[in-house]
């Protein structure tokens, strides 16, 4: 009979699981950046209440919030090849339907997901900027665009960073779902190592520690960014 719990195995497994960390980080980073771009666009569509686009944006956000992340990944994974096939048939193009790397599906799905959540954060942060700031811009004859660029958006970022960092951390954790579309991230790597040794509990402890450290580092870095973005605010001594 072996040990019930094998800490040595745990420590030995770290390097092997960590081999897949770049994949996890890559997916999280790229989908995070694309998600932010989506969030910017969507939040402005809603902030400026652009006809037709604004209600569409609402539907998009509602759909993403109302469906599980795993289902969204599956929809993208099975949907995009069909979409490409349809385009090939309709326009005579020759996209390689089976050649799209799985990681692209993962990034697309997670970016669309993160974009929806972050756009709500961005929109509420835009609305949280005091209306007097915009009036002051107008009173010295700035255009709306100039006001947004110089005054409103910089203040929005300061307000948005704490909730955005929550979204980013959720995103890092959501990457653990991509093993379902046969991407070897740290979660999949852990399953492989665990299956070989039948020490699943230990290996999941290893994975959870890695996620924890990564998320803690990201949270710390973003808190520094927040301090910078809000440098103009009065400090309250506590």
């Amino acid at each position: 009979m072996g040990k019930i719990f094998d800490p040595e195995f745990m420590i030995r497994s770290f390097p092997e699981v960590l081999q897949a960390l770049p994949t996890t980080l890559f997916i999280a980073f790229v989908s995070g950046v694309i998600g932010l771009v989506i969030a910017f666009i969507i939040s402005f569509i809603r902030y400026a209440n652009i006809k037709i686009l604004s209600p569409l944006a609402k539907v998009y956000i509602s759909f993403i919030r109302g469906t599980p992340d795993l289902v969204q990944i599956m929809l993208v994974y099975y949907g995009i090849p069909l979409f490409l096939k349809a385009i090939n048939e309709k326009f005579g193009t020759s996209f390689d339907v089976n050649g799209v790397p799985s990681i692209a599906f993962a990034i697309i799905a997670l970016a669309i997901n993160a974009g929806a959540y972050m756009s709500e954060t961005m929109r509420s942060s835009l609305l949280a900027v005091d209306s007097g700031q915009l009036e002051a811009c107008y009173s010295v004859n700035m255009t709306r665009f100039q006001a947004l660029r110089k005054v409103i958006i910089p203040q929005t970022i300061g307000i948005a960073i704490p909730p955005l960092s929550n979204s980013l951390i959720s995103l890092i954790k959501e990457t653990s779902l991509v093993f379902t579309i046969s991407i070897v991230d740290i979660m999949a790597q852990a399953k492989i190592v665990g299956a070989r040794s039948f020490r699943f509990f230990e290996i999941y402890i290893v994975v959870s520690i890695i996620y924890w450290v990564v998320c803690a580092v990201v949270a710390f870095a973003l808190s520094k960014v927040e301090v910078y973005a809000r440098r103009y605010e009065r400090k309250v001594d506590s």
Binding site: G132, Q133, A136, V151, Y232
Partner: peptide, 9 residues
């Protein structure tokens, strides 16, 4: 303005 409305940032 009454409440100054200086650009905070």
């Amino acid at each position: 303005f009454q409440h100054y409305n200086l650009f905070k940032n």
